Amino acid sequence: MESTARQFADAGGRPLHARVWTPAAPEQLRRRAPIVLLHDSLGAVELWRDFPALLCLQTQRTVIAYDRLGFGNSAAHPGRLGPGFIAEEAHASVLPLLDQLGLEQVILFGHSVGGGMAVAAATRLPDRVVALITESAQAFVEALTLQGIRAARDNFSDPAQLARLAKYHGNDPDRARWVLDAWIETWLAPNFADWSLDTDLERLHCPLLAMHGDGDEFGSALQPQRIAALAGARGGVAGHLMFEACGHVPHREKPALVLDAVQQFLDRHVPA
């Protein structure tokens, strides 16, 4: 397996950082649809840790992760996130990534808010996305989500916590503060209270798997249930899977179960 750093430009021409894991497999296998990872609200490529490499080895597919604008090693964000930032990611970053890296069709795998972005991108780029996997994604704003965010806000009042976050965002405390504020202020804002993925899920055409931990502090089982129900309402392939004794980061807490679930889903629903 080979891992290489890549750079591409978002829709505004700003440089974004990506990393690509390529399996040591025959050319025919390496031409299959790769998996693109979309990170969570505090995330970055490096915070996926060893999961992209494990996913590459498990599936024998190329895996790509990128830092959104303002995160990790990508360019700084020029302002604040607007209430439509989840839907906007499709054309702001996902489409430029696919075009500039020469990816005709992909599988999207989104964690937490990245799951919402993956749903929105799959809806807006139906010819480019052949399958969709969400992990710990929110489909709507529920009380548990807000409770978890408020608890995290209190936890990050400890300077040591912010310093740890900064390690993954250019070792820059100011950037880490922007990342944290972008998450907390956006989700707690009154104008975000009615946000949901309902319309996007109802328009989805590709197969979907929604994974969730039963102890997720940012969303109850209602989240994956709603994702699967709406995505499958018109007869499409959509299911959800709950992991027992698992919190918000199943790929770190239950990696073997996540990898097996992804492999089985792809074997069933994505042509080789």
Rank of each mutant, 00 (worst) to 15 (best):
M1D: 05
T4P: 00
Q7A: 10
A9M: 01
D10H: 00
G13E: 04
R14H: 06
P15T: 09
H17D: 02
A18Q: 04
R19T: 10
R19L: 02
V20D: 04
W21C: 03
E27T: 12
Q28I: 07
R30A: 15
R31N: 12
V36I: 14
L37S: 04
L38S: 01
L38N: 01
H39D: 02
H39Q: 15
D40G: 08
S41A: 15
V45L: 07
V45Q: 05
L47M: 15
L47S: 04
R49K: 12
P52S: 04
P52L: 11
L55I: 06
C56S: 15
Q58M: 08
T59E: 14
V63I: 07
Y66D: 03
D67K: 03
L69P: 00
A75F: 11
A76D: 13
H77D: 02
H77F: 13
G79Y: 11
L81E: 02
G84Y: 00
G84N: 12
I86P: 05
S93K: 02
L98S: 04
Q105L: 01
Q105D: 01
V106I: 10
F109L: 15
H111A: 03
V113Y: 01
G114N: 02
G115E: 06
A118E: 02
A120Y: 04
A121W: 04
A122M: 04
D127V: 12
R128H: 09
V129N: 14
S136R: 01
Q138M: 14
F140N: 06
V141W: 02
E142T: 08
A143F: 10
A143W: 10
T145A: 12
L146M: 13
L146P: 08
Q147I: 00
R150K: 09
R150L: 12
R153A: 12
N155T: 13
R164S: 12
L165G: 11
A166G: 10
H169M: 07
P173W: 11
R175D: 08
R175I: 09
V179A: 07
D181N: 14
A182F: 09
W183N: 12
E185C: 14
E185P: 10
E185A: 14
T186Q: 14
W187V: 10
A189Y: 06
P190D: 01
F192E: 00
A193V: 13
L197T: 01
D198I: 00
D198S: 13
D198G: 06
D200Q: 14
D200G: 04
L201Q: 08
L201T: 10
R203P: 12
H205A: 15
A210Q: 03
A210W: 02
A210R: 09
M211Q: 09
H212T: 08
D214P: 03
D216M: 05
E217Q: 15
S220H: 14
Q225E: 10
G235S: 07
V237L: 09
L241K: 09
L241D: 04
L241T: 07
M242Y: 02
M242H: 03
F243N: 03
H248C: 11
V249M: 07
E253T: 07
K254H: 12
K254I: 06
A256E: 12
L257Q: 15
V258I: 11
L259E: 06
V262S: 04
L266T: 02
L266P: 10
H269V: 05
H269C: 02
V270I: 11
